[in-house]
Design a protein around this nucleic acid. Structure first.
Length: 427
DNA sequence: CAATAACCGCGA
DNA sequence: CGCGGTTATT
């Protein structure tokens, strides 16, 4: 391993090379590396399937579920134990040199750190929210490891245009169909049929006929939104097209204020306040933003003393701009400058059935007594059981330089510089 | 501004 | 019939 040759006494980083029990597979695929990471900091089982990203493949296994995501040049594979995150990346070409592989592994680690925002201490945040909010304090232990992913803005924007009037299962199918239809397969795994497709770039989705094709794939009215949004983005921000300048423009919104970025997002078709706020929170670093949908509205009304807009009759009241703002502002005031992250915890908890965990109704004057119903069959859904069993693997430890310090690699340096810049802006 | 309809497809 | 929403129209 080339990076191990470099003498870097400081910031040594320990990780584990994992040898799978199948020698044949080990020969074809790179081994898993490991990263010490308490499950309270990240729960893959919840975070990857709770409606943030819709593109993770899950390979269920009673003991050891694997999660895979196809990036532009590699497929990232993850597994998890209560104390450790296991990762590897698989590439299209068959046999990279050990040096190539080591560099790629280092890149993948940088990507992981960025995508999961691992420099943010989730446990400390949970504590802070608990101090500010008794409701959060009461349920936090049940929902550990729920953090906001830092996703690609373009992919995130299109995914959430798909989310209108929709559910996670179908959004997942639609995004999958979109990738299969509009980007060539990157690779498939040895002995497996499934092909892994990256997310298609804006230029591809802006081509003629995309709307009709997506409609035939069951996208409904969202087909036009996606096509038109892609055309707008490429037409306005991708004029000179040195490989997708429009995507870079979207990424650049990370360096603008929340209001400015939201204003830009709202210009696209199919993007209203809710979708815009999701993109702001989940891919543009605006972690104070609280997206409001009907679920969040219900939660705010029930547990945070927001008055339901005089719907004394059981009438269904639409989400007006005023209601949206009231709810979003209220929850921001409850949770503070990382309110969007707290919202994600509560929202995910709600997906798994909020009431079944015996949350108290607030004691405030605006609250009405609510009967908490114990719901059957919902509790096991959140169980971490698959992750608690011992792993069927053997480990041998090696010490290498922390790839985060590999200052002689341009791509790593760039990523790190970008991160530092981002943190500085937040602070 | 608040309220209503239309949009698409899927599941209850 | 209703949905984790947006757009267009009153």
């Amino acid at each position: 391993m080339a990076s191990a040759d470099r003498a870097r006494p400081t910031n040594k980083f320990t990780f584990t090379i994992t040898i799978t029990s199948s020698a044949a597979m080990a020969a074809l695929l790179p081994a898993f590396h490991s990263l010490p990471l308490p499950i309270a900091q990240l729960s893959l089982a919840v975070v990857l399937k709770c409606g943030q990203s819709f593109r993770w493949t899950v390979l269920p296994d009673a003991d050891d579920t694997e999660y895979r995501l196809c990036l532009r040049d590699r497929v990232v594979c993850l597994r998890q134990s209560p104390t450790t995150l296991f990762y590897r990346a698989v590439y299209p070409d068959p046999q990279p040199t050990p040096t190539q592989q080591a560099l790629r592994d280092a890149e993948t680690l940088v990507w992981l750190n960025d995508y999961f925002q691992l420099d943010i201490d989730l446990v400390t945040l949970y504590d802070e929210w608990s101090v500010r909010d008794p409701v959060f304090a009461r349920m936090q232990s049940r929902f550990q490891g729920i953090r906001v992913l830092r996703q690609d803005p373009w992919e995130n924007l299109i995914s959430f245009i798909c989310s209108s009037n929709n559910n996670i299962a179908r959004i997942t199918k639609m995004v999958q169909a979109l990738c299969t239809q509009y980007s060539p397969p990157l690779l498939s795994f040895p002995g497996e049929d499934a092909k892994y497709h990256p997310f298609p770039p804006p230029s591809v989705l802006s081509e003629p006929g995309v709307s009709a094709t997506l409609r035939s794939l069951g996208f409904g009215y969202r087909a036009d939104f996606i096509h038109r949004t892609a055309k707008m983005l490429v037409g306005i921000h991708g004029k000179h097209n040195p490989s997708e300048a429009s995507e870079s423009w979207l990424v650049g919104l990370r360096n603008t204020t929340t209001d400015e970025a939201r204003e830009e997002l709202l210009k696209f078709v199919g993007v209203g306040r809710k979708v815009a706020d999701c993109v702001l929170l989940m891919s543009l670093d605006k972690k104070e933003v609280v997206p409001v949908d009907t679920h969040v509205y219900q939660i705010a009304m029930r547990y945070y003393g927001l008055k339901g807009t005089s719907s004394s009759n059981g009438k269904k009241v639409n989400m007006s701009s005023k209601i949206y703002n009231d709810v979003s502002t209220k929850l921001f005031n409850v949770w503070g400058d990382s309110a969007g992250w707290a919202h994600s915890v509560l929202f995910t908890a709600d997906l798994k059935s909020f009431a079944s965990y015996g949350l108290p109704t607030p004691a405030g004057p605006t609250s009405s007594p609510q009967k908490i119903l114990m719901q059957k069959d919902l509790l096991p859904t959140l169980s971490m059981a698959p992750l608690l069993s011992p792993l069927k693997r053997t480990h041998s430890e090696v010490i290498v330089d922390n790839p985060m310090n590999a200052g002689d690699d341009a791509s790593l340096t760039l990523s790190l510089a970008e991160r530092v810049k981002r943190r500085r802006r937040v602070a």
